[in-house]
């Protein structure tokens, strides 16, 4: 009964989607001809043609993410922060999950291997978020790589866990730093998240004003947050 009903719902939805996509379709490919016509506002075209000169970052996605749609990114960072907080709240009052059977200690090879690879992973993550404005990647991607390093530690080197308090402190501090950077822009140029630092020459590491700075903070924040989420979910805190 429930299955049949759901299938009917899905069928109606599929037909609706099909009819919405039919005909001259939506999206950049379908509107390619229109792209040449200057009347209509089109974010993508404008950003692709002006972003390098306006922000100094050669990665257009990075400049969209940090400057043009910076408020979204601030919100996104907040969403992740809220989720990490919510997770900690939910798992706070739970029963002690370390019930009896202590996890078996990993073998020496795994243990040493993890400890050897961990700094390399951190380095790679840092590379990705520092070069976010030049190459594919950025704060979130770099942060995710950093968090995978933490995950490796949780899996392979039990007993050697990062200090949760410090992780939380870094998390909060980078969030505050992001807001403060935005507010400095407001104070200097009257507009939140204004790119107030010198843009430098494109393709150089030290270019694009606030984009690399913001990305470094996002990288730290996301790395610590995802690491904390992994720790909370695996119950390693207790």
């Amino acid at each position: 009964m429930r299955k049949a009903l759901s299938l009917v719902v899905l069928l109606v939805l599929a037909l609706g989607l099909a009819s919405a996509l039919r005909g001259p379709s939506i999206g950049a490919e379908a509107n390619r001809g229109e792209l040449l016509d200057d009347q209509k506002v089109n974010f993508g075209r404008r950003y692709n043609s002006r972003a390098v000169e306006e922000t100094g970052a050669s990665n257009v996605v990075a400049s969209v993410l940090v400057t043009y749609r910076g408020l979204d990114t601030l919100g996104e960072v907040t969403v992740l922060f809220v989720a990490a907080l919510g997770l900690a709240v939910l798992l706070h009052t739970g029963r002690d999950r370390k019930s009896g059977k202590e996890a078996e200690a990993p073998s020496l090879i795994v243990f040493t291997g993890c400890r050897f690879v961990f700094p390399l992973i951190l380095l790679f993550g840092a590379y990705i978020f520092v070069h976010g404005h030049l190459t594919p990647g950025g704060g979130f991607q770099g942060g995710a790589v950093v968090a995978s390093g933490f995950l490796l530690i949780y899996l392979g080197c039990r007993g050697r866990q990062p200090d949760r308090q410090r992780l939380n402190a870094v998390e909060s501090l980078s969030g505050v730093a992001f807001v403060v950077i935005g507010l400095i822009g407001l104070a200097v140029g009257g507009s939140f998240l204004l790119n107030f630092l010198p843009k430098g020459s494109p393709y150089a590491l030290l270019s694009a004003g606030i984009i690399p700075v913001v990305y470094v903070f996002i990288g730290f924040k996301v790395g610590c947050e995802l690491g904390g989420i992994v720790a909370d979910l695996s119950g390693a805190r207790r």
């Binding site: 075209r45 692709n48 996605v61 919100g75 919510g86 997770l87 979910l233």
Partner: peptide, 28 residues
Amino acid sequence: DPVPQALVLTAIVIGVSVVALGLSVAIR
């Protein structure tokens, strides 16, 4: 178009957050 890519990055993070919270609710 770079904009959808930026939007997707945001949407992925939001999706991850919801799933993480959902899993912790499941644990509880």
